[in-house]
Design a protein around this nucleic acid. Structure first.
Length: 479
RNA sequence: GGCCCCAUCGUCUAGUGGUUAGGACAUCGGCCUCUCACGCCGGUAACAGGAGUUCAAAUCUCCUUGGGGUCGCCA
């Protein structure tokens, strides 16, 4: 049987980092097996779903490179892929179930239910309300009254889920109640639409978050009520906040787009996410193609983990600093928007290529890269006042002037030659490299930390190096 | 509270009966050095507790404890 997996987000916001992890595992499995990755939009909650959310999610998926074979935009043989467009199908299924006696109309109103809930609460605050099945066996349906359709859940026995990562998980059916399949407005509820679509779309494996483990027994029961064979399941361990709570905005950035905005690379994100629950021995860093080749369910863990931004940053860094993982072209394309944000638009490509090797190992994100690249593209660097106060003192003025002259006299404008000139001049004038280096760095970069001085000079070029040294000398004299 | 799931360094994890319990992040030292990084070397740091099974248990079983999930006309 060829693998068909799906990712089924509900469009009520952005793509959550945990959702992205679910999507990734499904996608990897499809790509690993040559199967099909289906994207399905679960927009049956009219109040929460929005078109903006759909495009935000599709956008994030594309950015991550999690391409889908069937779904929105792409289409496919099992469409439509928006649940809101599949209502007749759910209606038909529900009618079939009512006909077969595995579901029934329930005319209890929300008000009646709420009243029963509060009444119970008053009697016993700790008790849990269970729908008592008022309409379970009634046939005296009123005409023109709104109703929901409920599942006629078996009262005894047990249901066992076969799960790729957990093994067999058994729930007593007595725990289940006659849950609602279809709202009074005709829209299906999650458990129904999910089952119908997984069946209709030929899904063979449902991989999703652990929080859905509890939904699985009811879903299997629906499958069985319809005479269908349930797919197999894989419940992924939860991603928790650093404190061990449900991961939300309060604890960390949780939207994929947040990381994009901060200058993370798609593979940095994917690599961090895949290691959350999956491992391959001691290996930490993976390319996209390695991941596809290596991924499998046998090394997916069971225990929930806590989100760690520091590790995340480091994994991203691993991808940015290694040109085998992020080649020059990809790097330059990715850093461009962050340069633009600093006002550096259409930077000189040759200059960019020359500077890049020097900042790669100093930038953990593209945002940091843009910062590290900044002064290469300016006439004069923006000088940090604290750096100036510390290093551009009256005493350093003449040194910087002297250096400007000495370096300008160099025939060759290349790091090693410049260093030789620099050292020679210092020696002849009785200064120490250690003392002259920082003022020169501030002159060149405006900062106290940068790539090696002579590399910077080489990339910045003769004219601007000399100008920067002279300008800083003036500042030093004036300050 | 009922039901379900989970349990190795602070964090992510390797480990599938016999290991000095390994790696990575973080952290702390050191080397390199014109600064910052990168890189390299080294340190601190874990099998939740208790019973079993076994010649042998981080690995198997049970109990306890702890954590998480879920109990909607949300997904």
């Amino acid at each position: 049987m060829t693998v068909r997996v799906r990712f089924a987000p509900s469009p009520s916001g952005y793509l959550h980092i945990g959702g992205a992890r679910t999507a990734l595992f499904n996608w990897l499995w499809a790509r690993n097996t040559g199967g099909t990755f289906v994207l399905r939009v679960e927009d049956t909650d009219q109040e929460r779903s929005s078109l903006d959310s759909v495009s935000a999610i599709l956008d994030a998926m594309e950015w991550l490179g999690l391409d889908w074979d069937e779904g929105p935009v792409k289409g496919g043989p099992c469409g439509p892929y928006f649940q809101s467009e599949r209502r007749e199908r759910y209606r038909a299924v529900v009618d079939e179930m009512i006909g077969a006696g595995t579901a029934y109309r329930c005319y209890a109103t929300k008000e009646e239910l709420d009243a029963a809930r509060t009444e119970l609460k008053a009697k016993d605050p700790k008790a849990q309300f269970v729908y008592p099945g008022w309409w379970r066996d009634r046939r005296d349906w009123p005409t023109n009254a709104p109703y929901v359709v409920r599942f006629k859940s078996p009262r005894d026995g047990q249901t066992t889920v076969r799960d790729q990562v957990r093994g067999a998980v058994t729930t007593p059916n007595s725990q289940l109640q006659d849950f609602v399949l279809m709202r009074s407005d005709g829209y299906p509820l999650y458990n129904l639409s999910c089952v119908v679509d997984d069946h209709d779309m030929g899904i063979t494996l449902v991989a999703r978050g652990d929080d859905h483990l509890i939904n699985t027994a009811p879903q299997i029961l629906i499958h069985e009520a319809l005479g269908w064979t349930p797919p197999t399941f894989a419940h992924l361990p939860m991603m928790l906040s650093p404190k061990g709570e449900k991961l939300s905005k309060r604890h960390a950035a949780v939207a994929v787009q947040d990381y994009r905005a901060r200058g993370y690379s798609p593979m940095g994100v994917l690599n961090y996410l895949v290691r959350f629950g999956w491992s391959h021995g001691d290996q930490e860093v993976f390319s996209r193609s390695e991941l596809i080749g290596l991924f499998g369910w046998d090394h997916v863990g069971k225990s929930a983990g806590k989100f760690d931004e520091k590790k995340f940053l480091d994994v991203n860094f691993a991808h940015l600093k290694d040109e085998r993982l992020t080649d020059t072209e990809a790097y330059l394309a990715a850093v461009a928007p962050f340069l633009a944000r600093r006002g550096i638009v259409e930077p000189d490509p040759a200059l960019l290529r020359a500077a890049l090797p020097h900042i790669r190992e100093r930038a953990r994100t593209y945002e940091e890269a843009a910062f590290a690249l900044d002064y290469f593209f300016r006439e004069l660097p923006e000088i940090d006042p604290q750096a100036a106060a510390k290093f551009l003192t009256p005493a350093t003025g003449p040194i910087l002037d002297g250096l400007a002259v000495a370096l300008d006299a160099s025939a060759e404008w290349q790091a090693a030659a410049l260093e030789a000139r620099f050292r020679a001049w210092l020696e002849s004038s009785g200064h120490e490299l250690k003392l002259a280096a920082q003022p020169a760095r501030v002159a060149l970069t405006g900062r106290t930390a940068s790539p090696p001085l002579f590399d910077v000079m080489e990339v910045v070029g003769r004219a601007r190096t000399v100008r920067r040294l002279r300008h800083a000398a003036q500042t030093a004299a004036g300050g």
